[in-house]
Nucleic acid binder design. Structure first.
Length: 867
RNA sequence: GGCCCCGUGGCGGAAUUGGUAGACGCUCACGACUUAAAAUCGUGUGUCCUUCGGACGUGCCGGUUCAACCCCGGCCGGGGCUACCA
């Protein structure tokens, strides 16, 4: 006995979703065609690291891409939507240590597991283009690119002070150091002097800044972050002459860099970094200075350290003359706040107009000479004591600069420096060259051989790839490649002498810097990719990923594209035309009485209080924060898909919040999405039960009632489409719900009404397709269609019907809405005014008072101003 | 410290970019169906005033305007990036 006759039929996502995934797969619905005559559109989401487990953040990221792909395809584009794996990297080695699995096995197993989870979501990937960066086919081509970079002087080797992560046992790029700590390990980074491979990203600093101006479809935030990271500043590099030679210091001067050459007459001291060669030279005969330098090098770089760090200096008692006035002598100090890594490692101090210099001058009672005065102040009375004056103003006490505004004074000062050949105008960047060597096994080998006679010898192209050996051991610390018994030992390709291979591998950000190019020609064995094929698709039309890559990956990829251009691979500078950064997924956190984190499924709400399900003890419900394994506030995508289906899960992550903002996962939210999926299913089945005419049997005329629904239908498609184009998915879906509410309220009895109802229902099914592809395909089939939606076009909007012909607007009296009136769209101002004034509520509020004026904004508002 | 973003009901968020603030959803309450529950459907849900109706209301204070969530000035709060960058 079943109660099904009384029960509304429920949608079964499990069987339906599997059915449609198979159909898309069999039909190769999302295979990108290189030779298509349609315009190309390249949709790309940042490819994942194969951790083995899909998380909700992935679901959101890839659903956004999927919605765009399906939509653009329906709009007549040939869409490229590939997927691959950022598969090299340290976690594989750590897993090898923990589970005794080989990094390769671990990685490929993870890829297989994750691919299965991906498939459950029904994403429109062209899997025929799948690549993993750890595939030999991929890193082989990367080695080729590396050699090309060498030939073009983009890749080079140097000894440099680098960031050493003591936990991961490897070097990090500047971009990978966050707040003085390794980005992955969180360990305090140490400085080490090592010989490493670098990419000359600084060569493109200007181009990378300039290019930002063309990226007007990128979030402004990301553009600013890159701008700040590159850190361009313009100024002057000039020299202070030393009166005597200092033993052990090769120069007879100290070179400084400044962005404020206008304040040169306010100079009261010169300060050099603790690591400056002059400081080192002086320290040899001055133990007190040596001790001071050692003290300086201890200081931390964390935010708190800098905030509280006291300005400290050591007076070397050396004197240098002022470049424009020999009578003034400045003392040379070694100071802890001067950085060796920026500019020349030396500055002139102008306390009146730089806060750090002022703090320093106050501490050591050095002179403070103001030379810039704000408008309206009197020179004689103007004092700088605790706060440096850094705003615009006029120069005084400054010889040839007197009376000039700051900006003009800078120009004049620079000219003078150059005329007198003391200094030159210079642009400094904060950006440093990109260190790519990593002392790790699981990465792309750097194709270099070191010969005792010939030096650094690149591996010949015909001898590529340099294969990563698989028989490695992780039983001792350090790089397994380095202790491999044979791999490292080779004979020199030039002279045959016993030589060794480079055992460092490339950092994984190199791998991800060109994968979007490889996708255009993923199986090419001879070269990274065919130029023509790449140029068919590139630049990526829509790139989607997390904001956390604002400077890392996105900057590297922009650099790489320029470098690839220089090597002749492609005629392109900017790889990503449009960028969208999605927000994070968040969830409430829970702790038990002992302060231990609890998973959401371990707790429940009873009588408005959170308790532990198994023993009912009180639970501390904490902040809503980014889902993370350590805080246990995660939701498994697979469990949500299992319970509600892929479509409901997709719908929820797309509907509850704007896609670029954080989204809080909630049970109520996913329940709501699931209800809506069922509502759609029921709405269609029940309407079909009543019998609806086919759309080919269009009635010759429509009643007002039927026309009203048709107008709603076409207007809804239009608003929905507009929102979709603007990435306002939550608004699009809100409009969709309104639309379905209106359909549900519609009663169809005559043939023309039934036709209009069918038109409305078919429209709903077609526009939900990008969001709920399985459900919509199923409903489309139920409605009697042979063609599948994945191959169908977007509904055509009847502009005539979509246009509003009447509009309800507010009528204000003295700026407060007192009534509403409905007028034809584009109605004459006079008529609008008359209608408004005729309204009884409006009359009541005017109450016989004199009308001063009436403002009519067509289709918007009428405002009656009375005395 | 510097640069930038954001503050709208109990909650997530809309608002055609200066023109009816709170769409849509969630929550909650009540009602219908049911022996009952679930599911479903209906009604209500910014605050205050006893109601018809009205007053107030987009972090706070002020300004511009016929009209301000939106523009300007100043505060307060939250967040991001960056950092002794000369």
């Amino acid at each position: 006995m079943t109660t099904s006759s009384a029960q509304p039929e429920r949608y079964n996502p499990k069987s339906t979703e599997a059915k449609w995934r198979k159909i898309w797969n069999d039909r190769q619905s999302f295979k990108a065609d290189d030779d298509s005559s349609k315009p190309g559109y390249y949709v790309l989401e940042m490819f994942p690291y194969p951790s083995g487990k899909l998380h909700m953040g992935h679901v959101r990221n890839y659903t956004i891409g999927d919605v765009i792909t399906r939509y653009k395809k329906a709009r007549g584009f040939a869409v490229l939507h590939p997927m691959g794996w950022d598969a090299f990297g340290l976690p594989a080695e750590n897993a090898a240590l923990d589970n005794n699995a080989h990094p390769k096995t671990w990685t490929y197993d993870n890829i297989a597991a994750m691919k299965k989870q991906f498939e459950l979501l029904g994403l429109s990937f062209d899997w025929s283009r799948e690549v993993a960066t750890c595939d030999v086919a991929y890193y082989h081509q990367q080695q080729k690119i590396f050699l090309d970079f060498m030939r073009h002087d983009i890749a080079y080797q140097k000894e440099a002070e680098v960031n050493w992560d003591p936990v991961d046992n490897c070097v990090l790029a500047n971009e990978e150091v966050i707040d003085g700590r390794g980005w992955r390990s969180g360990a305090l980074v140490e400085k080490r002097k090592l010989t490493q491979w670098f990419f000359r990203i600084t060569k493109y600093a200007e181009s990378l800044i300039d290019g930002l101006k063309t990226l007007n479809e990128w979030p402004e935030k990301v553009v600013t972050m890159q701008e700040n990271w590159i850190g361009k500043s313009q100024g002057v590099r000039f020299k202070f002459n030393l009166l005597d030679m200092v033993p052990g210091y090769g120069e007879k001067n100290i070179e400084v860099f400044t962005t404020r050459p206008d304040t040169i007459f306010g100079a009261s001291f010169v300060a050099i970094a603790a690591g400056h060669p002059l400081a080192t030279a002086l320290a040899k005969t001055d133990p007190a200075l040596a001790a001071f330098i050692a003290e300086c090098q201890k200081g931390g770089t964390a935010a708190a350290d800098i905030e509280t760090a006291e300005k400290l200096g050591y007076n070397t008692r050396l004197k240098v003359p002022h470049p424009f006035d020999k009578k003034i002598e400045l003392t040379v100090w070694v100071a802890n706040f001067v950085l060796m890594g920026y500019g020349t490692g030396a500055i002139f101090g102008c306390p009146a107009h730089d806060q750090r210099d002022l703090d320093f001058a106050n501490k050591y009672t050095l002179p403070v000479r103001p030379v810039v005065i704000p408008d309206g102040e009197i020179a004689e009375a103007f004092r700088v004591t605790k706060l440096a004056y850094t705003a615009p103003g006029r120069l005084f006490n400054s010889d040839f600069l007197n009376g000039l505004e700051v900006d003009a004074a800078k120009k004049v000062a620079i000219k003078k420096f150059e005329e007198k050949e003391i200094g030159t105008a210079e642009t400094q960047y904060r950006l440093r060259d990109w260190g790519v060597s990593r002392q790790r096994y699981w990465g792309c080998p750097i194709p270099i051989i070191y010969c005792p006679d010939c030096g650094t010898v690149p591996v010949a192209e015909k001898n590529l790839p340099v294969l990563l050996p698989e028989d490695v051991t992780f039983d001792k610390p350090g790089n397994p490649l380095d202790h491999h018994p044979t791999w490292k030992y080779v004979s020199c390709p030039n002279c045959g002498t016993n030589a060794t291979r480079e055992t460092d591998t490339m950092g994984t950000f190199v791998d991800s810097s060109w994968y979007f190019m490889r996708f255009c020609d993923p199986h090419n064995k001879d070269k990274p990719f065919d130029k023509k094929k790449a140029e068919k698709w590139l630049p990526v039309d829509q790139y989607i990923g997390g904001i956390e890559h604002a400077v890392l990956h996105l900057l590297y990829a922009r650099f790489f594209t320029r470098a690839m251009k220089e090597c002749g691979y492609i005629d392109l500078e900017e790889p990503f035309k449009r960028l969208f950064t999605q927000g994070m997924l968040t969830h409430q956190t829970f702790k038990d009485a002992n302060g231990k984190w609890l998973y959401p499924e371990e707790v429940e709400k009873r009588d408005g209080k959170w308790v532990k399900i198994d023993d009912g003890t009180a639970v501390d419900a904490g902040d809503v924060i980014k889902m993370s394994k350590s805080k246990k506030n995660t939701i498994e995508p697979t469990s949500s898909i299992d319970a509600y289906g892929a479509d409901a899960t997709r719908l929820f992550v797309m509907s509850d919040s704007p896609a670029d903002k954080d989204l809080e996962w909630s049970t109520a939210g996913i329940d709501g999405a699931w209800r809506f999926v069922n509502k759609l299913y029921r709405m269609i089945s029940e309407s079909l039960d009543g019998g609806l005419p086919n759309l080919t049997e269009k009635p010759s005329s429509f009643s007002d009632n039927a026309t009203a629904l048709r107008k709603i239908t076409h207007r809804s498609i239009q608003v929905f489409t507009d929102s979709l184009e603007k990435f306002q998915f939550n608004s699009a879906l809100a409009r969709l719900r309104e639309f379905t509410n209106e359909i549900t309220a519609f009663k169809a009895s005559t043939m023309d009404e039934k036709w209009a109802l069918r038109e409305a229902l078919e429209s709903v099914v077609r526009i939900i397709n990008p969001f709920m592809p399985h459900l919509s395909e199923e409903l489309w089939e139920t409605m009697g269609h042979q063609a599948i939606l994945a191959d169908s076009d977007w509904p055509v909007i009847d502009v005539e019907l979509a246009r509003r012909d009447a509009v309800t607007i507010g009528v204000q009296v003295n700026g407060k809405v007192r009534a509403t009136i409905t007028l034809p769209v584009g109605c004459d101002i006079k008529i609008a005014e008359e209608t408004a004034l005729a309204h009884k509520d409006v009359q009541a509020w005017i109450d016989g008072k004199a009308i001063k004026k009436v403002i009519v904004v067509p289709d918007r508002i009428v405002n009656v101003v009375v005395a």
